[in-house]
Design a protein around this nucleic acid. Sequence first.
DNA 1: ACCACAATGTGGCATATTGTCGCATCTCCT
DNA 2: AGGAGATGCGACAATATGCCACATTGTGGT
Lengths: 176, 176
Amino acid sequence: MEKILLVDDEDFFRERLNRAFVRRGFATSTASCYDEAMVITHKEQPTMAVVDLKMPGKSGLLLVKDALSIVPEMRIVVLTGYGSIATATEAIRLGAISYLAKPADIDEILKAFSSDSNLELEGLSEEILPPSLARVEWEHIQRVLADCDDNISCAAKKLGIHRRTLQRKLYKYAPK
Amino acid sequence: MEKILLVDDEDFFRERLNRAFVRRGFATSTASCYDEAMVITHKEQPTMAVVDLKMPGKSGLLLVKDALSIVPEMRIVVLTGYGSIATATEAIRLGAISYLAKPADIDEILKAFSSDSNLELEGLSEEILPPSLARVEWEHIQRVLADCDDNISCAAKKLGIHRRTLQRKLYKYAPK
DNA sequence: ACCACAATGTGGCATATTGTCGCATCTCCT
DNA sequence: AGGAGATGCGACAATATGCCACATTGTGGT
């Protein structure tokens, strides 16, 4: 049975992850920060890990680096609130096997662990067409919203738009 | 003197890159597609390369992989129109040392070659605050516009907004 | 239970942005 | 010269947004 380490400073999200992995038969350990995670890494030598990038104290990137120096064969997936290309490339360079933007459901995470590569290299370079403005906007809203635990007032502030406007956008695009 | 290979299907951009590198004392070779690039890689064994991701025919990602199998010590920087996290992680995993979104000026590219890491790992996890909606919108517009060679009509189509609207947005935020 | 405080849902209304049409250039290609 | 495609801009209606007020619903602390 695979031993997996789950690291996230946010209790609710970490426990949700935990339950999901336990239900699927993994032996889990959880940590809420760099230091806890390193202690567990030393003691339990997990073979897999899910690490949140943004944590109080030392960053998840540093954890990726240091954990791998202890257990080089560990497969690490990095999670992050707002995916930035800079942190993504850095995470991979440090040895993470994948990098996902929250909210990431368990299936996505498991898929990231299993696939060596999720892109078609051979692809005859099918037209890569840019996402529409509306799509980019919507995805960014979703990310920020997730980061605010769906707190609309908070998200609106961070997005630099009025709360009422965010409400209306959510209402408009929400199929529900 | 370092031998550097520049690969981009767009003539204008490739030549601009070329001039910039020549001016800085590099020995350059240029290619406009996967096949040309592989021929040059075989013959000249360059030690550096700048590769555009989106090219007619085989993708830049495949080039990264195959070129490294011939010259394993080659340092490759990948350029792309619209940075996507998926392609970024894949590029790094395949062995590229960095991944930049266009438009990338020469200094950025050189910096990418020189620095092993451009992020502060030790950073006490300074508050990562999400960019405003307006900011993401603007950045996306700039990317698409660059991809369309500043063709406003074309960019507007891809962005899913009216040409007139794009004009107005550009006018508003253009410091000029 | 009670209170204070924050978040939410809603309506109204003034203002700003957008979509759409038209039209006069302007460039490039044949 | 003629045609295709791009651009800049004016005008107007349709929407979207910012902003205020108010009622309602959590949430946490005492």
